[in-house]
Simulated assay, not measured.
Amino acid sequence: MTPRDASDPNNGRWSDLDRPPLNAAALRRGLVREGGLWTAVEVVSRTGSTNSDLVALAAAGKADEGTVLVAEEQTSGRGRLDRQWTAPARSGLFFSVLLRPAQVPVERWGWLPLLTGVAVATGLSRAAGVDTALKWPNDLLVTVGGEERKAGGILAERAGADGVVLGVGVNVTLRAEELPVPQAGSLALAGAVSTDRDPLLRAVLRSLAEWYGRWRDAGGDPTVSGLQETYAAGCATLGRVVRAELPGDRSVVGEAVAVDGDGRLVIASETGVQEPVGAGDIVHLRPA
């Protein structure tokens, strides 16, 4: 992890007064407690990728379950399939968490990115006062000017035999001229009632702890935990005609009709054939 050069006026702690730094001590006081999920919260000013850093710490035996690593800026942030994620310093929430769901069969761990999406969407809806939706499998959508736009994403990576690192990136105060692509959005552009990142991060992490506990206690069962039903209710992909682009130049076109018990998107073709598509198999999912 490389700290920012505070001597550079463009990199200073107060270089953008609309984007104050996170208060690490206050976050720890609010989140780390005996018997709770979160065991450590660290905030770094700048790093390449919080996911890469936390995977490395876990591999070295230097991170317990419930470790949260937050960056004010990521220089090599990654999305699914190693797509790049960039944003100005202190303009969003960029963090990773380490979970070790030992009580849950490994074949159900594929629900963790979807669970994280539900937790992020519900936490931000409450704390920021914005309508959120999920694009299967891992995008957070907000509405800007009547148009759905991507404001966040989730990346899951294995950390050894018993761990998973979940990375979250959410655009909070990104301005229109700062958007990396026109289809991107932010909580501020969606009319959020609050863009104070401290309470937003606490709300998301509390929501994640709640959903993770419910899912873990149910042995990872998405039906018993209520996760499958809740995800489907907030998934903007369902009910739409989509094209799933798969490896080998193969594609599946049809209506997205369900998310099955394994977290796969079920696409029904015009002939009525239903084909489940897994997140690990898909290259792109687009409107047809």
Score class of each variant (00 low, 15 high):
Met1Leu: 13
Arg4Gly: 10
Arg4Gln: 04
Arg4Thr: 13
Asp5Ala: 10
Asp8Val: 02
Pro9Met: 04
Pro9Gln: 06
Pro9Ile: 07
Asn11Ser: 10
Gly12Lys: 00
Arg13Ile: 15
Trp14Tyr: 12
Asp16Met: 02
Arg19Tyr: 04
Arg19Ile: 03
Leu31Trp: 00
Leu31His: 00
Glu34Phe: 09
Leu37Gln: 13
Leu37Pro: 14
Trp38Lys: 12
Val41Glu: 02
Val44Gly: 08
Val44Glu: 14
Ser45Asp: 15
Thr50Ser: 13
Asn51Val: 14
Ser52Phe: 02
Leu54Ile: 05
Leu57Asn: 00
Ala58Trp: 11
Ala59Cys: 09
Ala60Ser: 15
Gly61Asp: 07
Ala63Glu: 05
Asp64Thr: 13
Thr67Ala: 09
Leu69Asn: 03
Val70Thr: 08
Glu72Met: 07
Glu73His: 14
Gly79Cys: 14
Gln84Ile: 12
Gln84Trp: 07
Pro88Glu: 03
Arg90Met: 06
Arg90Ile: 06
Phe94Cys: 10
Val97Leu: 07
Leu98His: 08
Leu99Glu: 01
Leu99Asn: 08
Pro105Val: 10
Val106Leu: 15
Val106Thr: 11
Glu107Arg: 12
Glu107Ile: 04
Gly110Tyr: 00
Gly110Glu: 01
Trp111Tyr: 09
Leu114Glu: 08
Leu115Ser: 12
Val118Asp: 05
Leu124Pro: 13
Arg126Ile: 13
Gly129Ile: 12
Val130Phe: 10
Ala133Leu: 07
Leu134Trp: 03
Trp136Asp: 03
Pro137Asn: 01
Asp139Ala: 07
Val144Ser: 03
Gly145Asp: 03
Ala151Cys: 15
Gly153Ala: 07
Leu155Met: 05
Leu155Ile: 10
Leu155Val: 08
Ala156Pro: 05
Ala156Gln: 14
Glu157Gly: 06
Arg158Asn: 08
Arg158Ala: 13
Ala161Thr: 06
Asp162Val: 03
Val164Glu: 11
Leu166Val: 14
Leu166Gln: 01
Asn171Glu: 05
Val172Phe: 11
Thr173Glu: 08
Ala176Tyr: 00
Pro180Ser: 06
Gln183Thr: 13
Gly185Ala: 12
Ser186Ile: 09
Ala188Gly: 06
Leu189Asp: 02
Leu189Ser: 04
Asp196Asn: 01
Asp196Thr: 00
Asp196Ile: 00
Arg197Gly: 05
Pro199Arg: 02
Arg202Asn: 01
Ser207Lys: 07
Ser207Gly: 14
Leu208His: 09
Ala209Pro: 02
Trp211Gly: 05
Trp211Ile: 02
Arg214Asp: 04
Arg216Met: 06
Asp217Trp: 02
Gly219His: 08
Gly219Phe: 07
Gly220Gln: 01
Asp221Trp: 00
Pro222Gln: 03
Val224Leu: 14
Ser225Thr: 06
Gln228Val: 06
Gln228Ala: 15
Glu229Met: 04
Glu229Gln: 12
Cys235Pro: 04
Gly239Pro: 10
Val242Phe: 09
Val242Lys: 09
Ser251Arg: 08
Val253Tyr: 01
Val253Cys: 08
Ala256Glu: 00
Ala256Ile: 01
Val257Met: 13
Val257Ala: 13
Val259Cys: 11
Ser269Val: 03
Ser269Thr: 15
Glu270Lys: 12
Gly272Val: 08
Gly280Asn: 11
Val283Glu: 15
Leu285Ser: 12
Leu285Tyr: 14
